[in-house]
C-alpha cells in the first residue's frame, strides 16, 4: 500500500468543511476501495477518532473496504424496476454470474451489488456495469452486455 499516495489525497481535502466524505470518495476513486491503513491517517488529519472514521465508512453502501472485481454490476431492486420484471432479471443475473449480492465471480471479473434506484425509472428495468447505466434490460441484452464487458474486463 502506497502510504504517501494516501497521505497526498488526504492532505488535498483536509481543509474542506466536512472533509470526510470528499476524502473517502477521492481515496476510493483512486484505489478502488478504502484501505485499512487509511483509517488512522484520516483520523489524525481530521482530528477525529479511528472509530468515527470506521463508523462513517461502514455506514455508507458506496464505500468498500476490500478491492472489488474488475467491474461492479449493480442491479436495481426498487419498485419501478420490479414493475417491469426486475425480480426475474435479478434472478437471471445471479444465475448467469453464479454469485449472490456482494460477491465476486471466481475469475475476479464482476462484483454484484444491489442498488435501490438509479434514477432511470422511465426506462426500467435498469442496471449499471462500471460507470454505464443500461435501461430496458432483458435477459438477452444482459447476456450481450456481460459478454462484451467480460472481454474488456
Amino acid at each position: 500500500m502506497d502510504l504517501a499516495a494516501l497521505q497526498t489525497i488526504i492532505n488535498a481535502h483536509r481543509a474542506l468543511p466536512g472533509a470526510m466524505l470528499p476524502t473517502l470518495h477521492a481515496i476510493q476513486d483512486e484505489m478502488g476501495y478504502i484501505p485499512e491503513q487509511a483509517v488512522s491517517l484520516i483520523a489524525s488529519a481530521l482530528n477525529v477518532s479511528r472509530a468515527e472514521v470506521h463508523g462513517v465508512i461502514s455506514f455508507y453502501h458506496h464505500f468498500r473496504t476490500a478491492p472489488p472485481g474488475r467491474r461492479v454490476v449493480e442491479v436495481c431492486r426498487a419498485e419501478s424496476c420490479q414493475a417491469k420484471g426486475g425480480r426475474a432479471l435479478e434472478a437471471h443475473v445471479k444465475a448467469q454470474l453464479g454469485v449472490d449480492w456482494h460477491q465476486t465471480t471466481n475469475d475476479g471479473a464482476f462484483t454484484l451489488e444491489p442498488v435501490y434506484c438509479l434514477g432511470n425509472c422511465a426506462c426500467s428495468p435498469s442496471l449499471r456495469i462500471g460507470d454505464d447505466v443500461h435501461g430496458r434490460v432483458s435477459s438477452e441484452t444482459f447476456d450481450a452486455l456481460i459478454s462484451e464487458a467480460r472481454v474488456e474486463a
Partner: peptide, 23 residues
C-alpha cells in the same frame, strides 16, 4: 458534494450530518 449511497440522507437532518462528514 457527493453522497455515498445512503437512502436516509434524503432526510434533511441526516443529509446535514452527512455533509458535516458524519454517519
Amino acid at each position: 458534494r457527493l453522497g455515498a449511497g445512503a437512502y436516509i440522507c434524503g432526510e434533511e437532518t441526516a443529509l446535514l450530518e452527512s455533509l458535516e462528514g458524519k454517519r
